[in-house]
Write a protein that binds this DNA or RNA. Structure first.
Lengths: 102, 102
DNA sequence: TGCGAATATGTCATGTCTGACATATACTAA
DNA sequence: TTAGTATATGTCAGACATGACATATTCGCA
């Protein structure tokens, strides 16, 4: 894992050490987690850039504040589908999303 | 929508005309569908490149042939999560996925 | 410090996705 | 054509994600 990516995961609340190490994740599983974390962070960026609270965004998405918080935290109960639809609702384009996960 | 993207959608079985037109999809919804179609096509490429049948891939994924077929067809009942995990299992990297959806 | 706003965490009923199976259709070679 | 293989389509019970709610924690500011 690149150092920059690890920094992001740590920032997102993942303990130090590689994500893969943490609980015997296979490389694919680790990559999947990394993508989810990256999308969660991206969502937070788009939300704050648009000066919205989680509650306000939730209303726009017809969701709830708690779910938005979980999205941004890449909670295991949040699907990538929901993250993507939320980002698109905030105005993110395919290429923005591609850049976020690359 | 770019011509190249439309060609892909048509190739994937979507009727001519823009995806958005087809059934009153909002731009965000259309973009989401396009991403799913792109991921489905990418999955097929990775599978055929690895000379696997849908059944063989299904076994590796602990899934079923029918679901693999639906993934490649971007069937509405298939989540992006499943598409991504499948691609990663085939050896695709984050940047490959980013390129596919960009 | 305290207070109010924002965010985080836990739980649950309801709705959606999943693998599995059956079966239909498409493709290839004889 | 036919048979054999691959892929597509339809359905369903069980598994998982969802919005909503309650509540806890963190943050910013006076």
């Amino acid at each position: 894992m690149k150092t920059s990516k690890r920094a992001k995961l740590v920032a997102a609340g993942w303990a130090a050490g590689t994500t893969a190490d943490f609980l015997g994740l296979s490389p694919e599983e680790a990559a999947f987690v990394e993508m989810r974390v990256a999308l969660g962070q991206s969502l937070r960026q788009w939300r704050t850039r648009n000066k919205l609270t989680q509650g306000e965004l939730a209303k726009r998405l017809r969701s709830s504040q708690s779910r938005v918080a979980k999205m941004e935290a890449a909670d295991p109960t949040v699907s990538v589908d929901l993250l993507l639809r939320s980002l698109l609702s905030l105005g993110a384009k395919s290429k923005d999303i591609a850049r976020a996960i690359a």
